[in-house]
Design a protein around this nucleic acid. Structure first.
Lengths: 172, 172
DNA sequence: TTAGCTGCAAAACGTTTGCTTCCCG
DNA sequence: CGGGAAGCAAACGTTTTGCAGCTAA
């Protein structure tokens, strides 16, 4: 059922300081705020990882049973269109989401556990821009994802069995 | 139906010189060569873009009607496992494939036209490895995609309307 | 009041798979 | 000959959608 979790970004980042963060953004963009949207917005505000829709649904349900998964799908889609959410495909066949309001960064995905580690890198940023320029383009956006494995110190104990790969590239 | 096309790599690259290129690789890895596999291998050898399964199926059908799409799916999966093909997710909800035998490279997607430009960059390669190491990981694979726009010399005429984005993140 | 949101269940989508028959080696 | 490959259609898991009723503004 895919219950992996991400590595939260460092505490210094003040991950999810405000439970109304996303709701505020919604209002700013003129969205009608229903109970369900507020609920989902809250779940998103509190997330410090990259949950997929089913995980969002689970977390929302835990706070209030008056939601359906269809609404979660509809809402993340809407928020993505509004630029409030970013959709990622880390493999595993499900889209995963994170708020766009905490700065540009990249991801390293642990192919064995599915964990996602965030990082940023000035050097890469500059390089990307330079490459685009070299090709005659203005850089609008870019995606850098690293897939890595923790070097195994010894034997390949149970947990490290090669992640089953389905449509994506890694899964849990 | 998403009928975008890629920009073939530069002619200097001698794109698809040998229609038996992929078949040879298959044999090298000890695969049983059936008529269908030969057919699909040929289509792949001749491709200079990044076709999805349906497109491969279409091209194969045009050469010989004795193929089913299930076989195309099974074959690309097999070839990917054998390292002969690389699967990409450029958005749009379908996996797209290209042969691995023409060197490691990355993609720049023209957000206005959907065209894909290939490039490689030693510096980036090294940087990716270094970042992974810094985070305590062995780099298994990585993905770098740039999204860019041709700088408009003067006015921003109609053609530059933001490319419609569907389930993937970018599309044409 | 009413445009637009929600829930439900069914459909759609790309992809995989069980089973039988067929064919390569 | 025997093991694996192909075809078909049904199954899969994720996401979208039609429709009837409900709700925020």
């Amino acid at each position: 059922m895919d219950t992996r979790t991400d590595t939260p970004r460092p505490a210094t980042d003040a991950a999810a300081p405000d439970p109304l963060r996303i709701e505020r953004l919604c209002v700013e963009r003129g969205l009608k705020m229903t109970g369900q949207r507020r609920l989902i917005a809250r779940v998103l505000s509190e997330a410090v990882d990259h949950p997929d829709v089913e995980e969002l649904y689970r977390r929302a349900l835990a706070l209030d049973a008056r939601v359906s998964i269809a609404t979660v799908y509809r809402t993340v889609r809407l928020l993505e269109e509004k630029g409030i959410l970013e959709r990622h495909d880390f493999g595993g066949g499900r889209a995963r989401y994170e708020a766009t309001d905490h700065g540009h960064h990249y991801h390293l995905i642990d192919v064995d556990s599915g964990k996602v580690i965030e990082f940023s890198d000035e050097q890469h940023e500059a390089l990307a821009k330079a490459i685009a320029a070299r090709l005659g383009y203005e850089l609008i956006g870019h995606r850098l994802e690293l897939f890595g494995r923790r070097p195994a110190p010894e034997s390949d104990k149970g947990g490290a069995r090669r992640a089953a790969r389905r449509r994506g590239g890694e899964a849990a």
